[in-house]
Simulated scan of single mutants.
Amino acid sequence: MEYRSFDRRKRRRKRWVQAGTGLLVLIMGTLLVRTLLNGAGSSNGAGSSNGNVGTENSTTNHTVPVITKGGSGTTAAITSNSTATAATNSTTKTTTAGTTGGTSGHSVLPSHALLSVAAQNQHPQLPNGCEVTSLSMLLTAVGHPVSKMSLAKEAPRAPVSVAWKNNASGLPQGWRYDIASWGNPNKGFVGHMTRQPGYGIYHGPLTKLLNRVLPGQAVDLTGSSLQHIFAQVAHGVPVVMWVNTTFKPLPQSDWVTWNNPGGPIKATFFEHAVLLVGYGPKQLYINNPFNGQKAQPVNRKQFVAAWKQMGSQALTVKAP
């Protein structure tokens, strides 16, 4: 009995040792796995940045991206801190912490963009030729330069000549408010580009002129969203936009109406076309043909209101 009891105790101790050893191995294995997991989770580039799990360093400066147009190609340089940038010969896209919203595709617009496009002055040759001068700048920007004078010669003309109130002859003093009937700028240029009386031309006939120069390349953006227009600029293509010379909404006293066979024409002699070359959260940047200034900053909110007052007219060419 004593021998059997001792033997049983010996076998029992052996089983305890084996069980304890297995438990110890299990505990050590668990600790090892946990250590490995903690080490992987805290490393840079594995779900964390700067020691903050699940966060990403999205700090950006607001240096305006600059795309320099030259000849038929494009040299692009975008300055931004901690941004993802993809560049080709003709297209530059940037994703930053602050964006203006989605485009027609899946890309995201950069919060700032600015194109370097050579400026032109409509004066002195074309006192009423802001539209064709802006179009000339656009064509130069996309590597197909055509002079403002050539475009002025080829622009469609509205067929109706001016008639004055009270059957006045010549050019009456204060003639802008004495017009009885005249042309329709949706049909072609109204009046004279080189002298008075002259008014302007709207997006429809100017789109036709652009398609004659670059067949099938004109894009009429009239009525489009700002995001759509900004997407063009972000892709390296400026946009002709119709506003007025004050770049803010006009009072009703600055508008006139004249008769036309197609119906009354409401117009303002502050009408102006410019080339949009950049945008930011609070400012837009234009090449202004009236004074020949390049990348002139204007108040974004007021400019957009003036653009809408002119019918949200815009024109460009297909982005590459």
Rank of each mutant, 00 (worst) to 15 (best):
Q252V: 12
S253L: 06
S253G: 08
S253M: 05
D254Q: 12
W255R: 03
W255K: 05
V256Q: 13
V256T: 11
T257W: 15
T257C: 11
W258G: 12
W258T: 05
N259E: 12
N260W: 03
N260C: 11
G262I: 14
G262L: 10
G263K: 04
G263C: 09
G263S: 09
P264S: 13
P264I: 07
I265C: 07
I265S: 08
I265L: 05
K266R: 14
A267L: 08
A267C: 10
T268W: 01
T268L: 01
F269D: 09
F270D: 14
F270M: 14
F270K: 13
H272Q: 05
H272G: 06
H272D: 06
H272L: 03
A273R: 02
V274M: 01
V274R: 00
V274T: 03
L275W: 01
L275C: 03
L276N: 02
L276P: 01
L276M: 08
V277C: 02
V277G: 00
G278V: 06
G278Q: 06
G278D: 07
Y279W: 01
Y279N: 07
Y279P: 02
G280A: 15
G280I: 06
G280Q: 07
G280V: 08
G280H: 03
G280M: 05
P281F: 14
K282L: 14
Q283D: 12
Q283K: 13
L284G: 10
L284W: 02
Y285G: 07
N287G: 05
N288H: 03
N288V: 02
N288C: 06
N288G: 08
P289W: 00
P289M: 04
P289G: 05
P289A: 07
F290C: 06
F290E: 10
F290Y: 14
N291V: 11
G292F: 00
G292E: 04
